[in-house]
């Protein structure tokens, strides 16, 4: 079961929107970070079940943050949230180990789908 998520995005509005798109009564513990570097730090501190990661951020961008997180925990479940869904971007984040990509702006439906994918991935990890 998913119990915690980390939302990494430099825009406070983007983080607010993400939280609004989470299902009602989700019962998740939500952590937040405002750039890639803070994101990695929070990930190491909180070890969330799922991380939503923006790509374009100051200090450290999403690509770098994803690399760092995966270096620390190859099993980390990270879902990239980006408006720029061109093929080369999708290929690059997939190669870096992202589970899935959600197109910005997110919606309740796309976030629900993302949570289900993360849950499935988590169950596979736990059963093995």
């Amino acid at each position: 079961m998913l119990s915690s998520v980390l939302i990494v995005d430099d825009s406070p509005v983007a983080r607010m929107i993400m939280k609004k798109c989470l299902p009602a009564n989700h019962g998740l513990t939500v952590y937040e970070a405002g750039d890639g570097k803070q994101g990695v730090k929070q990930y190491l501190k909180q070890c969330p079940d799922l991380t939503f990661l923006d790509l374009t951020m100051p200090v450290m961008d999403g690509f770098q943050a994803l690399t760092e997180i995966k270096k620390n925990n190859p099993k980390a479940i990270v879902i990239v949230v980006t408006a720029d869904v061109q093929e080369k971007v999708l290929q690059r984040v997939a190669a870096l180990g992202a589970l899935h990509t959600v197109k910005k702006p997110p919606s309740k439906a796309t976030i629900l789908d993302a949570l289900q994918q993360a849950t499935a991935a988590l169950e596979i990890q736990e059963s093995s």
Binding site: S11, D84, V85
Partner: peptide, 24 residues
């Protein structure tokens, strides 16, 4: 301040989507 934050995020999304569509 809130409007500025929303405007910035709308622009972020608009430009991100524009990149993807422009590439195509």
């Amino acid at each position: 301040d809130e409007e500025k934050d929303i405007l910035q995020e709308v622009m972020n999304i608009a430009f991100g989507q524009a990149s993807a569509d422009l590439a195509e």
